[in-house]
Amino acid sequence: MSLVSCEGLSKAFGPTCAVDQVSMTIQPGEILALLGPSGCGKTTVLRMLAGFEAPDQGTIALDQRLVAGPGLHVPPEERHVGMVFQQHALFPHLNVGLNVGFGLRGKARERQAQVQAMLKLVELDGYERRMPHQLSGGQQQRVALARALAPNPAVLLLDEPFSNLDADLRTTLRVQVRTILKQLGTTALFVTHDQEEALFMGDRIAVMQAGRLEQLARPQELFLAPATRFIAEFIGLAAFIPATVTAAGLATELGTVAQAIDAPVGTSVDMLVRPDDLELSADPQGNARILRCTFRGGDFLYDVALASQRTLRCVCNHVHEFAPDTRVQVTLAPGHPLAWFHPLQ
């Protein structure tokens, strides 16, 4: 039983197709991160869920209730969704307390109690009388979260809520927000273009690209078994090396990997190789040469050139340091099956 479910959502703005046949479901209490490059349609999906845009095709059900479909468009105020905007959108003429209480109905005392509870939750108790412009960016965003959560929405939608904040603040705030959402058991859709943020916030991640949903999976799965080349390249550092299917496994420039794949012997494929799938050792007769060395704090990232002039990237812990032009031996040691794709034409 899912709390949010979309079926075949499509939306075009003029000639451009912003969202193309997107279907997804969100389970109760789950945080789904919707990830993709800017302009991929992720915000349009969120705005259709909120009711600010009407889909051209497809249906949306929130909490088992159909809110959008052919001939049906429930207005935003009747959908019971909470929304946190990129630019927080606090009402500039109302103080913090009135902002948080804006969506509450009922007796003044009860509303006041709920406002207090929400401000306590976002650790801003004592700030009710402040005006929005007197708060820092992080505080403003926390008020926006409190305001969206106050009426107990069935689902919370967050539209790149941290993108206007500086890097440090973004990291602390996302810890805080995830803790609060998990504490309340809120079902949430979190839109972002930052994959690190998506990996941190999302229980599952939906990756969109040019209006299409490419894959919806747990973070580990996206990383280990990307459904498309786009995802393989979008998430983490990736390189592809050509391989041929043989009886013994996959034959590559770096030797044969004992991995059986569902393709006839003799097929050419591209294998996804990530920096941590490779091992480096000093070897004057080695099969590769160091091109560049980037120190990343905990480890080194090396760009190495193979005999075929193909370049790969590998990670080594910070004990080993190889100067550029050093000959090294590169070995494929993934410890897990590698993802593969049919070669590009």
């Binding site: 009711g51 105020e77 959908r79 959108a89 804006f102």
Partner: peptide, 28 residues
């Protein structure tokens, strides 16, 4: 900022209430 009105709508206020409670005060 159009998201001010959207925030109000998502908090359960219809277009008319939103005009009186959000748009007009913001125009003050």
């Amino acid at each position: 900022d159009p998201s001010l009105e959207e925030a109000s709508r998502s908090l359960g206020h219809n277009a008319t209430t939103t005009f009186w409670r959000v748009v007009l005060p913001a125009l003050r």
